[in-house]
């Protein structure tokens, strides 16, 4: 079963987004101990999308899909706008660079890349789909 939710481009919607992802993961992978990190990764990608592609226009929306499989979970974020940049090809700064520059930005995508196994961007005639996957190890 594919779980879907439409999200407004309002940073205040992030809490609802996290609840949605968390509830789906709890339901599909009961006992999986790293759900919090997957929730974080989706929060980071979506907040980035809201701020950089939509300038937090609360009337804009995009769809988040969670596609559970036995040993793999895929998240799809489908948006009718082109991405501000290609997250899959984006060189994230290292922690030392961020610290030295006292940056507030750049940490999010670094986290996403460390947490997820694969990140793909599919451009469409109108918009794009960001697809993130993670292998789920069976719980003992």
């Amino acid at each position: 079963m594919i779980h879907k939710k439409r999200i407004n481009c309002d940073l205040k919607s992030l809490q609802k987004l996290r609840s949605f992802v968390s509830n789906v993961l709890d339901k599909e992978y009961s006992g999986y101990k790293k759900s919090n990190l997957l929730v974080l990764a989706i929060d980071e990608v979506c907040s980035n999308l809201m701020q950089h592609s939509h300038r937090c226009n609360v009337e804009d929306t995009f769809e988040v899909r969670v596609i559970p499989e036995k040993e793999n979970v895929t998240f799809e974020i489908e948006d009718d706008k082109m991405p501000g940049f290609d997250i899959s090809d984006y060189r994230t700064p290292c922690t030392e660079e961020i610290v030295k520059a006292k940056q507030k930005n750049g940490i999010g995508l670094m986290l996403v890349k460390k947490i997820m196994d694969s990140i793909q961007l599919e451009n469409k005639p109108q918009g794009h789909i960001c697809r993130l996957s993670k292998k789920i190890k069976a719980q003992p």
Binding site: R18, E44, S47, V99, Q103, I107, G108
Partner: peptide, 17 residues
């Protein structure tokens, strides 16, 4: 209960300052 990157960024800047 939860922190994402903007929160870490705020602490980073404050810590360096």
């Amino acid at each position: 209960e939860y922190i994402s990157s903007p929160g870490i960024g705020v602490f980073n800047e404050c810590s360096q300052d």
